[in-house]
């Protein structure tokens, strides 16, 4: 198992290098640069050249990439071209916010999805099933922006004033106030995620329910809850967790819309600003960190699945 983990981690390095090179190239190929953003549409070519020089953008793109790689190997992600803030500082401030939001949304999504998925599978084709699958359908189809803006923000933030809209508060400063500011964005994402999760769990449960070992377990006279917990749910969770892991990775990349609507200075918000400003070092830094997180999460998902399923565990050595 340990060998496998180490091998996976080493294999991740070329993946990361490739991603960084592609992103660097794409950022270079899209029109516009930070000098243009600063000077606007009225800029003369001379002024653009001067500002490019001031910002260090007058070197060839390949050379800049090599400089970036050299700094990276020294553990330095560089500084923002425009704000001159260290990129690592920007990321280390926004990543925890996104992690926090992601974890909270996942918690809400799982809390909704597991009971709904289980009940709708057990009570297949009854009205309960219809209600649960409708919820799943609504969760997926509700536009996140609409739910966030019209329902949550205007109702709870403006009309009822139950939650403050004064921006992000760190749980280290005030746990209750912090949860209050995070609950709306987490709920928006949680509802959305609970949709597909419910459906995955339901279909996976239905598949497991038709397995012969379930019939055997019941025939042996094992109690209903025991069969459900140890045989049905446990075996149905594997595809569920895979999907959960992928969604976790996506959210780390930034729930851009939700972060924007709720003005949370997370990774999504940071990348939108950086891309708008063509701030290469920040775009690169964010991409790299998110890619690393993605690779790690995928690995983690595989490990968790192995723990849940002895069949995977036993073949683990030959992976």
């Amino acid at each position: 198992m340990l060998n496998y983990i180490i091998r996976r981690l080493i294999l991740g390095i070329p993946v990361l290098l490739l991603i960084s090179a592609i992103v660097f190239l794409i950022t270079y190929l899209i029109p516009g640069d930070p000098a243009m953003v600063v000077l606007g549409q009225g800029a003369s070519p001379e002024a653009l050249e001067a500002v490019r020089h001031r910002l260090g953008l007058d070197q060839p793109v390949f050379i800049r990439y090599l400089y970036w790689l050299r700094d990276l190997l020294q553990g330095n992600l560089g500084t923002s071209i425009l704000s001159r803030q260290p990129v690592w500082g920007l990321i280390s401030r926004s990543l925890p916010i996104t992690l926090y939001l992601t974890a909270l949304s996942m918690l809400i999504a799982v809390t909704i999805a597991i009971p709904l998925g289980v009940i709708s599978a057990l009570r297949r084709n009854t009205w309960i099933d219809v209600v649960c699958t409708t919820w799943a359908f609504v969760g997926v189809s509700l536009p996140g922006f609409w739910l966030a803006m019209l329902v949550l923000l205007c109702l709870f933030g403006v009309r009822l004033q139950w939650v403050p809209l004064q921006g992000y508060i760190s749980p280290r400063d005030d746990v209750i106030a912090s949860l209050k500011t995070m609950i709306l964005p987490a709920f928006t994402l949680g509802v959305f995620l609970s949709g597909p999760l419910t459906r995955y769990l339901r279909s996976s449960m239905l598949q497991t329910l038709s397995q012969e070992y379930v019939l055997v377990a019941r025939a042996k006279g094992l109690s209903g809850p025991y069969v459900l917990g140890q045989h049905i749910l446990r075996n149905s969770l594997i595809p569920f967790i895979t999907v959960l892991g992928i969604q976790f990775g996506y959210l780390l990349g930034g729930a851009v819309v939700v972060e924007n609507v709720f003005a949370l200075p997370g990774i999504g918000d940071l990348s939108v600003s950086a891309i708008g400003n063509r701030d290469f070092p920040v775009i690169q830094g964010v991409t790299l960190v998110v890619a690393v997180a993605f690779v790690l999460i995928n690995l983690l998902v595989d490990i968790v699945c192995a723990m849940l399923d002895p069949r995977i565990r036993s073949t683990g050595g030959s992976w």
Partner: peptide, 19 residues
Amino acid sequence: FRPIKEKATSLAVMQAGDA
């Protein structure tokens, strides 16, 4: 000065008396 990209959010923050 608080940066908020989404104008609809800014309006809600003003209506809630938080700016």
